[in-house]
Amino acid sequence: MAAVGCAVLGVGLLVGAVLGSWLRDDGERDRSADAFQQARSVWRSVPVDTLFPPTLTGPEAGPGGADRTWTRIAVAPDGRCEGAFDPLLETALSPVGCQRLLRATYTDATSTSVTTVGLVITRSDAAGMRALRSRFDAERLDLRTDLLPRPYAAKGTAAAHFGDAQRASWRISVAGDLPVIAYAVTGFADGRSIDRPEPAARATARGATTGPAQAGLGHDAKGVAAGVERAFRKAVDAATEPR
């Protein structure tokens, strides 16, 4: 995948990925060692529209159970993980290694928010992935404001001014059954700076009243990350299940 938007991933058909229960089900399953290893190379052979659907729809995925729709506005060339995360997050993820980083950026239906979503294809075995996930759960590393992913600010798009200072909410999901880490980071499309970013888990909590919560940015981070992770899982299942 010399460039994720080019021929190696293909163009694919315009599809929508419906979230629904995706926000409540991580889809993890028992996998053989061979299936786990094969999952590491699935991204090379599927269309970009399979991994990053042009449109993601989330019934009841917004604040108050409102429906949400996100449109893809940019796909980054695949590459390494250097510079894609805050330094401490890069250190926290280092035990599982980074074989490849795949990223895209979405905007909501009103072009008010922008969300960069990423898939880190790791070098780790299943035991290493489970260990990292256990550490994230035990130490709540996904809630720390000094461990954030960085945006992909594609020029000429609504995300052109989406930098580190604009990050408002984020989600990080370490898979226990696949060599992948899915994440998303969200901000306002108008480029306003955010003093106190809030993790999606808190910004989507009942009764949350912070700016990111009231604007639905936690829901955007959670919904887009969940949708892309589910798309990756479906691609892996299609490639590894016996025919």
Rank of each mutant, 00 (worst) to 15 (best):
M1H: 11
A3S: 14
G5P: 07
L9S: 14
A17P: 02
S32N: 09
A33G: 07
A33W: 04
F36M: 06
Q38N: 08
R44Q: 13
S45P: 00
P47Q: 02
V48N: 14
T50Q: 15
F52K: 09
P54E: 09
T57C: 06
A61L: 05
G62H: 03
G64F: 02
A66N: 09
I73L: 07
R80A: 15
F85S: 02
L93I: 08
S94K: 03
G97L: 02
C98T: 07
R100I: 13
A104T: 06
A104D: 08
T110E: 13
V114W: 05
V117E: 10
V117G: 12
G118I: 04
V120E: 12
T122V: 07
S124R: 10
A127K: 13
R130L: 00
L132E: 00
A138F: 01
E139K: 05
R140H: 13
R144W: 04
R144V: 07
L147Y: 00
L148D: 07
R150Q: 05
R150Y: 09
K155L: 13
G156T: 02
A158Q: 15
R167I: 13
W170L: 14
L178W: 00
I181L: 10
A182G: 15
G187L: 06
D190I: 10
D190S: 12
D195L: 13
R196L: 15
E198Y: 04
R202Y: 11
T204G: 02
A215H: 05
L217S: 04
L217N: 01
A221V: 08
G223S: 15
V228F: 01
A235W: 11
R243Q: 13
